[in-house]
Design a binder for these strands. Sequence first.
DNA 1: GCCAACGTTGGC
DNA 2: GCCAACGTTGGC
Length: 154
Amino acid sequence: MPRNWLMKSEPGVYSIHDLRRDGRTGWEGVRNYQARNFLRDDAKPGDRVLFYHSNADPPGVAGLARIGRAGYPDPTARDAESEYFDPKASDEDPRWFTVDVEFEEAFPAVVPLDTLRATPGLEKMLVINKSRLSVQPVTDAEYEIVVRLGRAGA
DNA sequence: GCCAACGTTGGC
DNA sequence: GCCAACGTTGGC
C-alpha cells in the first residue's frame, strides 16, 4: 500500500514547474533528522507526494509527484562545493539521505495553506501544526481531500 | 524584513 | 543529560 507524503520546496529554489520540466529530480538538501528518517526508512517507489510551495505567496500545495527511487545517501552532503555539504558525512555514515521524485501533475492553482486550515478533515495535517517539518506523512483521507481541492482549482 | 517556533550544538 | 545560545524555517 503506497504511503502519502507532503514535501516542501521553496518555489524560488525548485518549484512544481521545474519538476514538470525535469520529469524527475533528486530531493537533495534535507538536513532535518525527522525528515531524513522518513526519506531513509519509509518513502518507497510509488508513494504519492503533495508538492508544497513554502516561502511562497501564497504558500500551499502546488501539485502532485511520486517517489521514483527509495532513500539513498544524499551526494550533496559529500560535495565540498555544495551549499548542503556536511563535513560529518562519510561513506561509512552518509548521515543524510535523498529520494528521487517524479512529476505527476501541476494543479491549475495552488491550494493555499489558508484553505487547508479551513477545510474539514484536514485539521490534523502536520503542515498546519508542525509547519517546519519539510517531509511529512499524509493520511489517505487527507491526500484525497487535497487532490480534490487542487483539481478543482481551489 | 520580522520574529515565533523549534531544532541543533556544545559547555558543563 | 541539561540547558543556554544559536541558527533555521517559514508564515506573515
